[in-house]
């Protein structure tokens, strides 16, 4: 290999940089967020597992259905009707953005842009 003296240290520096967050945090991902449950309801629009992994997919689908296809018929679970809407559906039970959204999003370091438009006023205004 040409320029061995440059390439190998270069690769090492790159590797070190890439794993630096793990090293800095002492190989510890921090305390796993404790999930709260909404009061007074036991069932969401889908299974707990599905909601945990794919709630964003549901939100995307609802958005397209309500906005683009004009389908705003409520989703019914055990006789309770929920609007196909983040603000007027999900957040009727999951009332606090801090508890129900930010808790995990901050931990997982995801920054959904929902809140640029949709919001709970007392928290974002």
């Amino acid at each position: 290999m040409y320029d061995k003296k440059l390439i190998i240290p270069g690769l090492l520096v790159f590797l070190l940089l890439m794993i630096s967050p793990i090293i800095i945090n002492g190989l510890d991902a921090g305390p796993v967020p404790k999930l709260q449950k909404p009061k007074g309801v036991t069932k969401c629009v889908d299974s707990v597992q599905y909601m945990r992994t794919s709630h964003m997919k549901i939100l995307d689908d609802w958005r397209d259905q309500a906005l683009r296809e004009g389908n705003r018929t409520p989703v019914e679970v055990d006789g309770v009707k929920y609007d196909r809407s983040l603000m007027n559906g999900c957040m009727k039970c999951h009332v606090e953005k801090k508890k129900f959204c930010d808790e995990c999003h901050v931990y997982a370091s995801v920054k959904p842009y929902c809140w640029d438009c949709h919001f709970l006023p007392e928290e974002t205004f």
Binding site: M87, N88, C117, F119, P121, F125
Partner: peptide, 18 residues
């Protein structure tokens, strides 16, 4: 647009824009 929406009259059921 957010800082320019009247906080006293805004509609909680409708989103703002970005």
């Amino acid at each position: 647009p957010r800082p320019f929406i009247d906080k006293t009259t805004y509609n909680k059921e409708f989103p703002t824009r970005m």
